[in-house]
Design a protein around this nucleic acid. Structure first.
Length: 700
RNA sequence: GCACCCUUAGCUCAGUGGCAGAGCGUUCCGUUCACAUCGGAAAGGCCGCAGGUUCGAUCCCUGCAGGGUGCACCA
């Protein structure tokens, strides 16, 4: 019999243990219903570098709803959990930790650093696994993967080798997005553009004047450029002009290039191939005429090379001093003080990125992107919300090659070796002497892009044959490009098949004033903390109701409290039903009245609506419907009107009333189970029904 | 600059080509009843603005305004 009050603390751990020991999280222990296929979700592996936050609770809830729903519908359900080593992200977290301890990764050996981060992630991973359990995650722990498992690394190597052999992975020197603080290159997606006001300097180059916000790069200039159609400068094209530099006289060739916008500034540009990506490309088009990259800024953002007295200065300081000097020399024409422009910054630390030339590994994206576009256009992969595919197309149609080299230790080391001009790529060490391995590691997202098929043991694993393509990829819209698009590209490339049939994108979690949650604002809700107070079921419900695909999710403690009240309601209504059961009812043949039958028809209707909504990933509609039905139909009306009947002297009357309530209760618990698994399983365990199994595997 | 989204009750959000919805909040009433972690009731709306399509538009189309997000970029 149910206790007077529902206490999640007493119930949740016990129920989770029961589920876990039952083996039902593992599809191998489930019975497949006829004419159905397995149902597969690969969990977005949380980063093993910190505690779970509400964003994790969102994906756990939505995916757990799907897993439980399809499991109850008789499909062999695999929800495969994992953890991500999260290369750069973890490196940054660990850097901060080292900083607090007064240490620095640049002063540590590779092995030593690796070992420490390994231990750090392993202990985080363990904590995270416990937290996932607390949230009710019904995933198959026996298949859990880590992105640095040997088989995963081996698979990543094979993919890289295939890309290399197919000419899709190549090594090249490019001006890359360089973070001087973290001392690594970043992909274009990891660049955050912020608006800033800076002085715009107009500088004389002999007879011509250029405008720039970066006078400190002028030591790296190798030419001047104008638009070929610009009448003003027609006579200069191809000529070499004499100019006064801050360190003495200079000569520059004037070239013409379409990339120059005649309407901007003076229409003349200094070409600095080493420190500007566009200028680098201009140089590549004019290799015969002008000199290439002349590096004058180093990896730490300090001036180096032929920079005279400015050597060793940081960029910002050098800029001011150079401006003064230019004024002295008489080549500073004017300064526009508040020029508004966008600057590239590191998405993690906000440092201004320094474009510098570096040899890196790139992936040629166009051919991969075309197939990924087709897979969605043809409808093989569906997006929820549908509109997000427009964003997906837009990105893929304008995609640039992907820099996958990172100059950090934490990650999968690139399996490439160099010997002079020779390059060797392969899983095994190269034959012969004198090879040096690339010290760089892969961008984490490179390995993540292969997650769905590698976790299933591609190409030979039986799981791959059974569970691939997976059914749903459920993740946040903020990683549509980082992860989802790349998984589609790499899945198609490696396996020839789509990695998943549906993509469901949830939004960011915001507080009740629509603010993003952040530690500095002090509005962070710890999912485990509120689950401890109000119960996991309440937190899950609060995350689901009112949240639609692709839109941000608003949550507050009040809302969670509201759904705590709902679990109380479920508990008490169930308790009422169960205390009205009598042993003799079993023998009574009940006869439902007209009203009873109508109630049962209504129940059926609700059930089919909830089913439809879940099939369509309309979690908010399904949860609202069942919430409303249980509270305002079942508890408020059906239970209330049955009270006199339950007290009736005629056993057939009371037995029928009871039977009706029990029937509706059982069906309601089933419908509620995916959303609120703990309280429903606990109550179900106290109901005396025929051939009872655990609710988690009771037929929907 | 280009793209995408949003604008509905005090707040946060659902929703539909046919009388406008929920939660929270507010106000009032109610505790020997499964439940005060509750029940009952009420107040509260030009569905952003202007056109168009339609018998009928909050919903579909066009334009505008305000807000948000993404992508790109001119030195």
């Amino acid at each position: 019999m149910l206790e007077k009050n529902y206490d999640p603390k007493l119930v949740e751990n016990k129920i989770y243990d029961l589920w876990e020991r039952s083996g039902f999280f593992n599809p191998d222990n489930l019975i497949q219903k006829k004419n159905t296929k397995p149902f597969t979700i690969i969990m977005p592996p949380p980063n093993a570098n910190g505690a779970l936050h509400l964003g994790h609770a969102v994906f756990v809830t939505l995916e757990d709803i799907l897993a439980r729903f399809y499991r109850m519908r008789g499909r062999k359900t695999l929800w495969l959990p994992g953890a991500d080593h999260a290369g750069f992200e973890t490196q940054v977290v660990f850097d901060k930790k080292l900083d607090k301890e007064g240490r620095n990764r640049f002063k540590m050996g590779r092995e030593e650093l690796w070992k420490e981060i390994w231990d750090f992630t392993q202990s985080n991973k363990k904590i995270m696994e416990g937290q996932l359990r607390k949230l009710g995650t019904s995933c198959d722990w026996s298949r859990e993967k880590f992105t640095l498992d040997p088989d995963i690394i081996s698979g990543v190597y094979k993919t890289f080798q295939k890309l290399y052999d197919d000419g899709l992975a190549y090594r090249d020197v490019r001006v890359v997005n360089w973070c001087p603080k973290h001392r690594t290159a970043l992909s274009d997606l990891e660049v955050k553009y912020v608006e800033r006001e800076d002085p715009l300097y107009y500088i004389k180059y002999g007879p011509l004047t250029i405008a720039t916000v970066r006078p400190e790069t002028k030591f790296g200039d190798t030419a001047l450029a104008v638009n070929p159609g610009d009448e003003r400068y027609k006579n200069y094209i191809g000529k070499t002009i004499d100019a006064v530099g801050v360190l003495g006289p200079l000569k520059f060739k004037v070239i013409s290039d379409e990339a120059i916008d005649p309407k901007f500034g003076t229409g003349v540009v200094k070409v600095t191939p080493a420190h500007d990506a566009t200028d680098f490309e201009i140089w590549q088009r004019h290799k015969d005429e002008i000199a290439g990259p002349k590096v004058v800024i180093d990896e730490g953002g300090r001036l180096i090379g032929e920079v005279g007295e400015f050597k060793g200065l940081k960029v910002a300081e050098a800029r001011e001093k150079i401006a003064l000097k230019m004024k002295e020399v008489g080549i500073l024409e004017k300064i526009e003080p508040n020029y508004k422009h966008q600057i590239a910054t590191c998405y993690k630390c906000g440092s201004t990125l320094e474009p510098i030339p570096k040899p890196q590994w790139f992936i040629k994206m166009k051919p991969l992107a075309e197939k990924a576009i087709k897979a969605v256009q043809s409808g093989k992969i569906k997006f929820y919300p549908d509109r997000s595919k427009k964003v997906y197309f837009h990105w893929l149609k304008n995609i640039k090659d992907w820099n996958i080299s990172r100059q950090i230790v934490w990650g999968i080391r690139i399996p490439a070796w160099f010997r002079g001009e020779e390059i060797f790529v392969g899983e095994e060490n190269p034959p012969g002497e004198g090879w040096v391995q690339d010290p760089d590691v892969f961008d984490t997202w490179f390995s993540s892009s292969q997650w769905p098929f590698l976790t299933l043991g591609y190409p030979k694993g039986s799981d791959f044959k059974k569970f691939y393509p997976t059914d749903v990829m459920e993740t946040g819209y903020d990683i549509l490009f980082f992860w989802v698009a790349r998984m589609i590209m790499m899945g198609l490339y490696r396996t020839g098949k789509i990695p998943f049939k549906s993509v469901y994108l949830h939004g960011l979690v915001r507080d009740k004033d629509r603010q993003k949650m952040s530690k500095s604002k002090g509005n962070v809700i710890d999912p485990l903390g509120v689950a401890e107070i109000y119960g996991t079921d309440a937190v899950r419900m609060a995350l689901v109701v009112g949240g639609t695909a692709g839109n941000d999710i608003v949550i507050s403690e009040e809302k969670i409290r509201g759904y705590r009240n709902f679990s109380t309601k479920i508990w008490n209504a169930s308790r009422f039903v169960l205390i009205n059961n009598k042993p003799e009812f079993k023998k009574i043949k009940t006869k439902f009245s007209k009203d009873d039958k109508k109630n049962l028809t209504d129940l059926k209707k609700i059930k089919s609506q909830v089913t439809k909504h879940l099939e369509n990933f309309e979690f908010h509609l399904a949860s609202e419907k069942i919430y409303h039905y249980f509270w305002h139909n079942f508890a408020d009306k059906i239970i209330e009107t049955s009270k006199p009947r339950l007290k009736s002297d005629k056993v057939i009357e009371s037995a029928t009333a009871y039977k009706l309530l029990e029937t509706i209760l059982v069906e309601s618990l089933k419908m509620l189970h995916p959303f609120m698994p703990f309280v429903t399983e606990e109550i179900y365990g106290n109901i005396d029904v025929k051939n009872k199994k655990m609710l988690i595997v009771t037929s929907w």
